[in-house]
């Protein structure tokens, strides 16, 4: 670790100050809120860790946590696999690369709310174009909104659709950074296309994969609009995710204490899930692998 001289510290100070003001300070305040009972029009009452007890003993919290965990894992890993496949395709060369690139990135440019609502209309049971197609193909009525597993699958699908460009970009950039000469060397060593991908491209994309996993786990944990706009947590609160649970307690019931506690538990949860990859990343950085 290099030592910073005072001038360097001074120059970094505005950034740190900004980070402190917009991230650290609100986080600390939210933590303080989580130790208090608080609602509109009343003063804070210190209750210690009672809010955490309330949240952690709530079956709805645990159901939301389980739903979040299932959806987040499905989203992140499926998205990663598709992104790797697509990036490999692009790396191998596609026709009209600029147009293809624009098409692939498009979902990311669409407002999340608009995207979800369009999907919702297309999937509308009995009248949506996709729902009717599925029905016409003989799969029966696509009545996802009353079936928690189906509804969460739809949430997963839309979430993947929306965030795939982000993961794709990270992975593709990682693959582009691999020196061309490595591929040439491997071709001379006798590697087939498949071996080339498996033995060269994939291992060397691991850093990009780790970064995208960390980012996506943390982002995906905040999953809200897909669920809120599609099912609002229903039917019977069976499709709630943590962010919806937090929204209910904070912005519907006005219970800021439990909402803050949920917020902190979400931070710990997403860190917990991402920590495996953070740790792997740290190890690579320490051992100097890239």
């Amino acid at each position: 670790m290099r030592r910073l001289n005072p001038a360097a510290i001074l120059m970094l100070a505005p950034t740190h100050l900004l980070l402190f003001l917009v991230i650290a300070l609100p986080s600390i305040y939210v933590f303080w809120l989580s130790l208090n009972e608080s609602t509109y029009g009343s003063d804070l009452t210190f209750v210690g860790f009672n809010n955490y007890v309330t949240v952690l003993t709530s079956p709805y919290f645990w159901r939301a946590a389980l739903n979040t965990l299932i959806v987040v894992n499905a989203v992140v890993y499926i998205e990663l696999l598709i992104a790797i496949g697509m990036a490999a395709l692009f790396l191998g060369g596609v026709r009209y690369p600029k147009i293809m690139f624009a098409i692939v990135l498009m979902p990311y440019a669409i407002s999340e709310v608009v995207g979800v609502l369009v999907w919702k209309i297309m999937l509308n049971t009995g009248s949506g174009v996709l729902a009717r197609t599925i029905e016409a193909l003989g799969f029966g009525m696509f009545n996802w909104s009353v079936s928690p597993p189906l509804a969460l699958s739809v949430v997963t699908l839309i979430s993947i659709w929306h965030h795939l460009p982000f993961t794709f970009l990270l992975i593709y950039a990682g693959m582009l950074a691999i020196p061309k000469s490595l591929y040439e060397a491997s071709r001379i060593d006798g590697a087939s296309r498949w071996q080339e991908f498996w033995r060269i491209t994939l291992p060397l994309t691991v850093p990009a994969i780790l970064i995208s996993l960390i980012f996506r786990f943390v982002f995906a944990f905040r999953l809200f609009s897909e669920v809120w706009l599609l099912t609002a947590g229903g039917p019977a609160r069976l499709t709630e995710v943590l962010a919806v649970y937090l929204y209910q307690s904070g912005f519907k019931y006005g219970e800021f204490g439990t909402a803050s506690a949920t917020g902190w538990l979400m931070v710990l949860g997403s860190l917990g899930v991402a920590s495996v990859y953070l740790w792997a990343m740290h190890r690579r950085m320490v051992s100097g692998n890239d």
Binding site: P179, S181, A185, I188, G190, I200
Partner: peptide
């Protein structure tokens, strides 16, 4: 390249 039975040393070494 493999079938030609050539081996190559690259400018940037191209080590994996």
């Amino acid at each position: 390249p493999k079938e030609r039975q050539v081996a190559m040393v690259f400018q940037d070494y191209a080590l994996y």
